[in-house]
Amino acid sequence: MNIQILNLLAKNARYTVSDLAVMTGLDEAEVEANIKELEVAGLIRGYKAVIDWERLDNAYVSAVIELKVVPQDEYGFEKVAENIMKYNEVESVYLMSGTYDLCVIVKGKTFHEVAMFVAKELATKHEITSTATHFVLRRYKELDVELVNTEKDERGAYSL
């Protein structure tokens, strides 16, 4: 399992096999085999762009929903979590420590749409005892990428 390749792809999923070969000092066939291995082993689950949706007029909105859940016999929180994650509206689901149990990130076209999803699909489930919805107002950093005030290179063209 090549951690260096994993770290590089985590930074930039668009590095080509030949880029990665140069960067790691491996040959291209080795890099390819390594990536395959990482994918098969389920370490690499996908390759996505980091998008600043706020730059689009009809950007989607998202909310962090705190759920308190009654754990089920045998299954604990698993069943509820796995059920919730199937919705297209749900971006992420996490089991949490602390004052609530599941953290669900939900996205939708409008605040209303998200609120309706929570009210109709989540709040109605009998295992879920309470919900608290927190809308995201502004994104500063997403997946390690700063979305605001990107620092400009203030160095001149030359220095010795």
């Binding site: 620092e151 290179d153 160095r155 001149g156 063209a157 030359y158 220095s159 010795l160």
Partner: peptide, 28 residues
């Protein structure tokens, strides 16, 4: 005077210069 002054002045007057010319890190 430093041997790069001349180039510095030329580069200053141009748009779209891409530099490999500095002797300091880019990291904050």
């Amino acid at each position: 005077p430093s041997g790069i002054r001349k180039y510095f002045d030329i580069a200053e007057s141009m748009e779209g210069v891409i530099s490999l010319g500095v002797g300091e890190p880019d990291f904050p």
